[in-house]
């Protein structure tokens, strides 16, 4: 693959990855949020795919397909089911309003750029230059997790972080050793299942997934 096209394609995928992450802050409609998350899963798979094609690495390509299937297929499907069961499909009152969140996201992008300097400097390459994109999504995911009140929004925040970590792993090192990779994927899947079960349980005992209701435990 000629180098210029590789860089362009990689950055295009990273751009899509970033945009879908940031758009999550923008949308209140949880169905749209889930769709964005699925799109981000595709973008992540595309990033891995481009890297695999560049390195001519079949194993990496297969991992990319697996990541895509998990993050653009299974996880969004699970979340959509949880949403359909709950019937509440809007993020009503985030702790930080949407406009402010968007401005905060811009600041987070700058922060991500600043903290990723050492990474880029250690091994300057098109892939490591895109690490700030992943870190921005990580911070955005954290922000979503902290400021959103619906159980499902928090799950999406968590998954955004996880996507970002995965993206960082592939952009910096083309992935951690396979054993760890499998363990990590399994753990994430299980964590999601736990959250899925808990979401249903919250709905059963609190009558909704607005986490403002979770106020019984305090000092």
């Amino acid at each position: 693959m000629p180098d210029l096209t590789y860089t362009e394609l990689l950055y295009l995928a990273c751009g899509a990855f970033l945009l879908t992450g940031v758009m999550v802050l923008w949308r209140r409609d949880l169905r749209a949020v889930i769709r964005l998350f699925a799109l981000q899963g595709l973008a992540l798979a595309a990033v891995i795919g481009v890297l695999a094609a560049h390195q001519g690495d079949l194993e990496l390509a297969l991992v990319g397909i697996g990541v895509g299937a998990l993050r653009a297929g299974l996880l969004p499907y699970l979340m959509a089911r949880a949403l359909a069961a709950g019937g509440e499909d809007r993020e009503t009152r985030p702790l930080v309003n949407v406009s402010a969140s968007l401005v905060v996201a811009a600041a987070l992008a700058m922060l991500a750029y600043a903290i990723s300097r050492p990474l880029t400097e250690l091994a300057p390459s098109p892939a490591t230059r895109a690490v700030p994109v992943a870190l921005t999504v990580l911070l955005v995911g954290f922000f979503v997790l902290v400021t959103r009140r619906r159980a499902l929004s928090q799950v999406v925040g968590f998954l955004l972080m996880d996507n970002a970590i995965t993206a960082t792993a592939f952009l910096t090192t083309s992935g951690v050793p396979l054993v760890v990779e499998l363990g990590v994927s399994l753990d994430v899947l299980l964590a999601i299942l736990v959250l899925y079960v808990l979401t249903n349980r919250i709905r059963a005992s609190f009558g909704g997934t607005d986490l403002d209701e979770l106020r019984e435990l305090h000092d």
């Binding site: 950055y11 990273c14 751009g15 970033l18 945009l19 940031v22 968007l102 401005v103 996201a105 811009a106 992008a109 700058m110 750029y113 990723s116 880029t120 230059r129 895109a130 700030p132 994109v133 921005t136």
Partner: peptide, 15 residues
């Protein structure tokens, strides 16, 4: 505005 800012940020790190 955020997208514009991200465009600037991207123009710095994605070169």
């Amino acid at each position: 505005f955020l997208m514009a800012l991200l465009a600037v940020a991207a123009s710095y790190f994605l070169v």
